[in-house]
Every structure is written in C-alpha cells, then in structure tokens.
Design a protein around this nucleic acid. Structure first.
Length: 737
RNA sequence: GCGCGUAUAGCUCAGUGGUUAGAGCAUCCGUUUCACAUACGGAAGGUCGUUGGUUCGAAUCCAACUACGCGCACCA
C-alpha cells in the first residue's frame, strides 16, 4: 500500500472560479440517483466501528408524508434536512440506510382544494356526485400530487424513490382495512350518538384535535327566565342567545346558596313557553355570570354531559347546514344561526327579558381546514374506543421505549392521553378510505355489518341489497399506520422484517397527538412493536419578527427561492446552523449568506490544496485515512491532526444526540478558523512533503464530515479530486477517530 | 384560568457557578503579495428583561414580576 502520491500539473479549471451551485446540483443529484444507492438494497454493508454501535445493520426513517396539496415551506425544509443528515451519516457509517418517501391523501384539505376549483366554474361536489367528484380529485392528484416530492429532490434529499408510497395506494388500502377489521373484531369500533364537532362548510364531523380557536368579540347576554307560577325570574348569562330554543334545563351549582331553594322548581322558557326544570350540577361555575346556566344538551359539550347525568331531553335545534331546525317556533325555522340570533335578541328585547348586556371576548372553535365556525351538535358517528390504546401508548413512553427529543414534549403527549375521549373516526366527506361497513336495508332497526367487498346477499336479513355507508375514515386513521404500512404491512414483507421498528421520527410539535401518538398506539396494538425509538420534535420556523410564516399573509419565505439564490447547500447549512432545542426559530437570511460564503471557502480551500506546490495530493484513499506513515511532524501538523480528531468526536456525539446546530458550528469553526486560518497559513511556510499530505487528508476528512450537511458541494469537490479509487462521497467511509 | 417556553451586542443566536461574556451579519478603519475581497487584519458596540434571594463568586441556581410566543381548559 504505497504512498500513492499523484503529481498533477494543473488543477481542474472549474476551481478557478467561485463555486456555482446552479451548474452543479442537478448534475450531482442525477449522479446519486443513477448510482442507485438511495436504495439500501444496493448498498454493501461496510465494516465500521459506528455500524457496530448501531442496533442493527439497518437504519430506517419514514418521512412524515406531506399532503398532496402541499408545497415546500421552511418547516418541510428543516424537517427534511434533519432526516437527510441522519440518513446520509448512517449510510456513510456502513448501515443499510433507508428513507421512505411518500404523500398523504389529506382528506378534507384535498377535497377543499378541488371544491375550490369546481367553484370557479360554479359547481359543487354535489352537482358532480360522488363518483365523478372522486375522479376529479384523482385527476388533480396526478397533476399536482408529486410537486412537493420533486421539491425534496432539489434540496438534496436522499430518499429511496423506488419505495415511494401514497396513503390511497392499493396496498395501503389493505393496511387500512386490516386495521379496521382488527379493531372491529375486538369490539372497539362502535356507532354512537354523541355531541360532535361539525363544520357546516366542509359538512363533516371533526375530532377535537382538528379544531383551532379564534378570538371573538361578542356580548354576554343576561336573560330573564320567568319562574313558573311566580312573578320572579332567574337570570342566565349566555354568548349564544339563539341556543335558548334548545334549552331543556337551567343548572346551578349545588353549593350555591343564592339558588338553593329554586332547585327542583320550573321555569318557563321564553319565546317557546316550554316548562323546564332547575337542576343542580357541580360543573356549574358559581363565579361566572349569574351562577345559573342555560342547558342546551344538543349543542354544547358541557351541557350534553349535564343532560346525560340528569336524563334531560336533548333537543336538536341546529342542523348540519347551520340552520335552525326541530321543535321550535315556526318563525325561526330554516334560518341561519346568525340571523336567528338577531331575531331572538330582538324578540327578547320586545318582551323586556334582558337584565343586562355586557361586552365579552372569548375563543370560539373553528375548522382547521377552512376556518368556519364549528357547530357542536348531536349526531350519529363511528367511534374507536381509546382506553386500552391510550394505556399502551403511555406505557411505551413512560418505560422509555420511545423517547422524545427534547423531552419536554412528552408532557403534551401525556396530557392528551390522560384526558382521552373515544376517537370519532367517521367523516362525511368523499375523498378518503371508505368505511367497510354496510347497512341492512330491510330491517327497520339500524343493523350494520363489515365487508370489504360488495356482498351478494345481506347476512342480516338474507333478502335485501345492503348499502355501504357513505362515510370515510378520518385521514389521521390512515396516517396512523404510515410507518408500518409503507414497509408492507399487513403482508409479511421483507422490509418490515429488516427495517421495523424504524429508528427515528422527525416532525413538528403541532402533530404530536394528531399523528405521533396515534402511530404509537396503532403500532403497539396492530403489530406489537413500537413504531420508532426516537421522536425528534424540531422547532417551528418563524419570521424574523417572530410571526408565523403564512402564505396568505405574505409572511412566508419560499425555501426554493433561497435555493435559487444561494444554493441548496447554503440553505441547508444556514438553517441547520440555527437549529436549537427551542420551540421557535426566528429565521434570518443572514445565516444563509454566511453558509454561502462558507461553501465558497471550502471551494477555495480545495483549490489551494490542489495547487499547492508541488501540485499533488494523496491518491490512495487507504493511505489518506491513516497518515501513520507521516513522520517528522511540526507542531502545526500535530495540532491540526489533533483538532481534526476532536472535531470528528464532537460531531459524532452531536449528531448522535440530535444537536445538529452544534455540529454545524463545530464544523464551521474547525474548517474555517482552524484549518484555513491557521493550518493552511502555516503550511505556506513549512513547504514539506508531510504538509502536503496532511492538507489532502484534512480536506478529504472534512468533506466527509460536511457531506450530510452540504451534500452537493462536497460531492462535487470529491468528484474532482485526483483520487485513484473513487466512487461517490455519499457512500465513502465515515471518518474514524 | 392552568401549564410550558423564551428574554444576552443594532439583527439572528452561542454561552448552565469561576479570569477582560462570544459568533455570524450589519457598522467604522485599513489591506487587492500568488486559495479565497463571498477574503484578510483591526475597531466600536452589552448595567446578560426587572427586582429580590442562595453563594466566597450568578448571564448561568431559586422566587416574584413584566413582555412576547405556544399548548391545554368545563372560555355558559
């Protein structure tokens, strides 16, 4: 194994100019794709001290599937950079590293986008009908659904595209059916009449997690409810006077001395002349309003709970369109809630039934997909029992089988699971996984059965033609299966055997419960394994002013525009340089500029190494790994080799502990200030053979360490180094210490 | 209402008990000799949110307060 020194007369001409990412990135990405090494099946397992530390020879991350309606924003970019750093590092460390890409059909979000398109030509989904509408959505998906995945290629993501998945693929549907069947057999799926969140615009139910809240400035109306057979009255305070039409009681706190002698008496509900009781319930807050609350069981979650306890009648007075309905005076029927409110206020005023009206601000729930005010209403829906699943999910994190980074986010997880309610899994939209539930048409009672195919004969009555219920599953029901469904479950797939549980999940804090928690219990229940060992919750990227980046407000920054201006590596390094454990990152473009300069610095340092006189570089990679043959070292030589060793150790540790920002700082400091400022300067004075060799060695080792962070630049340089045995930096051996 | 997080240079952030508190960007001054002016050398810039406490010693630990952000809530 000789020294393998190659004397070169001229450096590649491209190094004479500054680094040009635009001319490089596409070509390098094609080179990687052509190599096939994004697919771990093509990788050879390498001996490496790092590989031995790994739990298995395989390493796997599944991407949080972006919605097909999505286009890359800063959050996606940060999310993807982290995953790519991990996968690229593990690949170089000798693992069969797999990063599975894919997209989510995103039920309500996608349906809304296509509905908006239809609206432009004055059509609604109901005009088209279910079948035609779904065809339109597929058409839309084929046209736009892959945009975001192609954007991931532009920022250098090394996903295995041959394993790309979509939540409505044939095989994915099998997984969803299998999961449904499993829960159904256990008796955990049931149909129930409950108070649910209803979006009158999307015309579907929503789970609690799918709500957002916005501040509403309104009034608190104090309404007099006359006592029956008396001239006295009790005053109730409300923000929604129109719901009084559905009141079936007035409730007070049992401890409240003011009302003690009224409990059990009746009041006459104004405008309707119905008699309703005054009841006592501990949920009533004596401090709020008058301490007496009107109870509208069909349209308020707390009132519903009170009604169940006291067996009160439940009067539904608001329908799925957001209009007044039911047993109410004729003049209010069929009008929208807001108009009805005005009418009611007017009518109550006429009868002098307001004690007072005071301004009041509170938060009201809105739909997370369209922003429409949510109507709580009573409705028959399908639910999944959560008690056992929640227990399992809690246990796995408590026993540290799954760890959150940073740990503080576990609290949000536990808080939700501790107060869990059964999961309403049915949605009244059309785009999604249809519930495999069929209804017998003969029986006057509601009878249902499960079937994945159209049944020839009704198994209940034996006569009728059963019909499948129209509902689809909550999008998050299918997303919850993602990590194992993409690897081939429920089949006994090789990938499941080799890559499951996956190693790490990288995501943002807003879907800890919506998605992460549900993956955990789904995996534990359905395949008796955790879905991943570590959960990285990264910061949210805000504007410099600390505001949320939003397209509609024009505060968003398009990462691809940054890539266009500074190059993908600069965006990657600049963003990761800012990575911390904080909940937010205020984005500053200055860091991207810094990284761009850093790219150029590396480029120029390479030029120096290549043209240092006599122009030569070690050509034998083995030789370069361990410059043991180098003797006669100066103190500068020894120092830089020691500093390099320390840098490798620190970078390893920081990547291992998911401290990516710190790793970037260390690499920056080492390369610029220790290697360039000090050692390169020193090398100019000590023009020895050893120095030239150390220059090459330090450069190549630095390129390897930098590759997960800035893959394009480092690969491009590597491809132009005069090395004898050269393949791709992407699969080069990670530096050992 | 309850809980969590943050507050350090003009800006974005490092820095968790120990000499004169750091980086990048921005500012000012100087330098184009041969890797790089996307560079190099230098300067200026901070009562480390406020108040109190623990300690020989606090940006760092504790408490309260203020501001901003986030999450949850039974927001009638």
């Amino acid at each position: 194994m000789g020294s393998g020194i190659l004397y070169i007369m001229e450096i590649p001409s491209k190094f004479k100019k500054p680094y040009n990412p635009k001319k490089t990135e596409k070509r390098i990405y094609r080179l990687w794709e052509k190599s096939g090494y994004f697919n771990p099946d093509k990788l050879k397992i390498k001996k490496s001290s790092y590989r031995r530390k790994q739990r298995s020879k395989n390493y796997c991350i599944v991407i949080p599937p972006p919605n097909i309606t999505g286009s890359l924003h800063m959050g996606h970019a940060l999310n993807s950079f982290i995953q790519d750093i991990l996968v690229r590092t593990k690949r170089m460390q000798g693992c069969k590293a797999l990063w599975v890409p894919g997209t989510d059909h995103a039920g309500i979000a996608t349906q809304n986008v296509v509905e908006k398109e239809l609206k432009k030509v004055n059509l609604t989904r109901f005009d088209l009908g279910r079948e035609k509408f779904i065809k339109e959505v597929w058409k839309w998906k084929r046209k736009y659904g892959n945009i975001i995945l192609n954007q991931l290629k532009k920022i250098g993501c090394s996903c295995d595209w041959s394993r790309k998945r979509f939540t409505l693929d044939k095989n994915y549907i099998k997984a969803v059916n299998e999961a449904f069947l499993h829960y159904y057999k256990k008796g955990w799926i049931y149909r129930g009449e409950r108070l649910i969140n209803w979006c009158p615009r999307c015309k579907t139910s929503l789970s609690d997690l799918e709500l957002e809240y916005k501040e509403e400035k309104t009034n608190l109306w104090y309404i007099k409810y006359p006592l029956a057979k008396s001239s006295k009255y009790i005053v109730v305070a409300t923000t929604r006077p129109e719901t009084m039409l559905g009141d079936t009681a007035v409730a007070v706190n049992p401890q409240d001395k003011r009302y003690k002698n009224l409990i059990g008496k009746k009041v006459i509900l104004p405008l309707t002349n119905r008699n309703i009781p005054i009841i006592a319930d501990k949920l009533v807050d004596m401090e709020f309003g008058t301490g007496a609350v009107k109870v509208t069981p069909a349209h308020d979650p707390v009132d519903f709970e009170i009604a169940q306890r006291h067996k009160l009648p439940i009067l539904k007075i608001i329908d799925e369109e957001g209009k007044m309905t039911g047993e109410i005076p004729e003049k209010y029927k069929g009008i929208y809630i807001n108009d009805c409110r005005k009418k009611i206020i007017n009518d109550l005023q006429k009868e002098n039934l307001f004690k007072k009206i005071e301004p009041y601000a509170h938060k009201i729930p809105i739909c997370y997909r369209c922003g429409t005010v949510i109507q709580p209403l009573i409705n028959k829906q399908w639910f999944l029992k959560m008690d056992k699943l929640a227990q399992m999910a809690k246990k796995a994190v408590k026993q540290r089988k799954i760890k959150f980074y940073p740990k503080k986010w576990e609290k949000i997880y536990f808080d939700w699971l501790n107060n869990i309610k059964d999961w309403c899994i049915s949605r009244q939209i059309w785009w999604g996984h249809r519930l495999p539930i069929w209804q017998c048409q003969m029986n006057p009672k509601e009878k249902y059965f499960l079937s994945f195919k159209k049944p020839k004969k009704c198994p209940i009555c034996g006569k009728c033609k059963p019909e499948q219920i129209p509902d689809v599953l909550d999008t998050w029901f299918s997303s919850a299966l993602w990590p194992f469904a993409v690897l081939g479950w429920p089949l006994r797939a090789k990938d499941i055997k080799n890559f499951y549980p996956t190693d790490v999940l990288v995501t943002a804090r807003d879907i800890i419960n919506l998605w992460v928690a549900r993956m955990i219990f789904s995996s534990l229940e359905l395949i008796r394994k955790i879905p991943f060992r570590d959960v990285i919750i990264h910061a949210t990227i805000l504007t410099k002013e600390g505001k949320r980046m939003s397209k509609s407000k024009g505060t968003g920054i398009d990462p691809l525009e940054l890539v266009d201006e500074y190059g993908a590596d600069a965006v990657r390094f600049g963003l990761i340089y800012q990575y911390t454990d904080l909940q937010d990152i205020r984005f500053s473009e200055e860091n991207i500029k810094m990284a761009q300069k850093f790219c150029n610095k590396i480029w120029n340092a390479t030029r120096f190494v290549l043209m240092s006189e006599p122009s030569r570089i070690c050509t034998n990679i083995e030789y370069l790994y361990k410059p043991t043959k180098i003797k006669n070292l100066t103190s500068a030589d020894k120092r830089i080799l020691q500093q390099l060793k320390t840098t490798i150790k620190k970078v390893n540790k920081d990547i291992e502990n998911y401290r990516f920002g710190k790793a970037a700082h260390i690499l920056y400091d080492f390369f610029w200030h220790k290697f360039c400022d000090k050692y390169i300067e020193a090398s100019k004075k000590q023009n020895t053979k050893e120095t030239k060799e150390i220059l090459g060695y330090v450069l190549l080792t630095s390129l390897k360490l930098l590759h997960p962070f800035m893959p394009f630049l480092t690969e491009e340089i590597y491809q132009n180094l005069p090395l004898k045995k050269k393949e791709l930096l992407m699969i080069e051996k990670w530096p050992e210490t």
